[in-house]
């Protein structure tokens, strides 16, 4: 690795670097106090219901439909964000056009823009009397206050994840491989589908999973644009808020625990994807 003068020390000797106890201890303490303890309180509250109680909450038709909606729409939105995010990432890294840098910076907007601001902006844009909503209304589509509105907000939230996970990988595709493929007579499309795309799949999946996880939990931007109608456009996080205002703490905690479990699973899946890609493509 780094060209250093001859050493008498072994290359890796963890004991040389100090501060493990301090930093590890501090990080673990913070993590426990800020994240683990409150989450444990949540699980403890929900476990008051027992596993069967949590299951009953999940099976309640209204809760079930809210969870279905949150996960279903989020899945669709993450899919859309992944597809378009891939195109955006590809265009941004492979092509040069005026204003590319600005467009590139704009991708991060949903990270930095407060969700409530995004929510009211999207609502006023896609409402039937809004700029885009009016055009959609002409062709008979009502976007805001329907699941389509939720979809739009989730795509907005998820897009940067989809772009930013794939973009650096596209930037670092070895062009020689593409050239080799081309010289061996492959058409461009074949090169893309057989040579360029496969190594990108894990990143696309990771971006998809992140956009999905974020979409499922999103609240601020969605409540302004969803119709919040039970069984139609009521998302799971809103149902948590509703349960709280009904003073049903256990019910709220149960829904939250279910969502938390699924967040865990999503993160696990991301890790598995990465482990798989390490094996499949030999990445470290």
């Amino acid at each position: 690795m780094v060209a250093t003068p001859p050493r008498r020390f072994h290359f890796r000797r963890p004991s040389v670097i100090p501060g493990f106890g301090l930093t590890f201890g501090y990080a673990l303490t913070c993590l426990s106090l800020v994240v683990l303890l409150p989450l444990a309180a949540l699980v403890a509250r929900a476990s008051g219901l027992g596993l069967s109680g949590i299951w009953d909450v999940a099976r309640d038709p209204r809760v079930a439909s809210a969870l279905r909606l949150s996960f279903g729409v989020s899945l669709l939105a993450a899919l859309t964000a992944s597809v378009f995010g891939f195109v955006v990432a590809w265009v941004l890294t492979r092509y040069d056009f005026p204003g590319r840098r600005i467009v590139d910076a704009a991708v991060d907007l949903p990270f930095a823009l407060p969700t409530a601001v995004a929510g009211i902006a999207l609502a006023s844009l896609y409402a039937p009397n809004g700029l885009v909503g009016a055009q959609l209304a002409k062709v008979g589509i009502q976007a805001a206050y329907t699941p389509i509105g939720i979809f739009i907000a989730m795509v907005f939230i998820g897009l940067p994840f989809a772009v930013r996970t794939v973009q650096p990988l596209i930037a670092e595709i070895d062009k020689e491989v593409e050239e080799a493929s081309a010289t061996l007579g492959a058409k461009r499309l074949l090169t893309l589908t057989r040579v360029v795309l496969p190594p990108l799949i894990p990143a696309v999946l990771t971006g998809f999973a992140l956009a999905f996880a974020r979409g499922v939990g999103e609240y601020g931007s969605i409540i302004f644009i969803a119709g919040n109608l039970p069984f139609v456009s009521e998302i799971a996080p809103l149902l948590i808020v509703i349960k709280l205002s009904e003073f049903d703490y256990a019910g709220a905690a149960a829904i939250a625990t279910i969502m938390l479990g699924i967040s865990f699973l999503t993160l696990l899946v991301i890790n598995l994807i990465q482990a798989w890609s390490r094996r499949r493509f030999g990445y470290v």
Binding site: M1, V2, A3, F111, P160, F161, R164, T165, Q167, P168, L169, E172, I173, D174, P199, P202, A203, T206, G207, L210, I270, Q274, S277, R278, F281, G282, Y283, V284
Partner: peptide, 20 residues
């Protein structure tokens, strides 16, 4: 921000010598 989660993927693609 989140792109860091697959930093390992990315690192692998980048040839190790470029890091040098």
């Amino acid at each position: 921000m989140f792109d860091k989660t697959n930093d390992k993927l990315r690192r692998a693609v980048r040839c190790s010598d470029r890091i040098v």
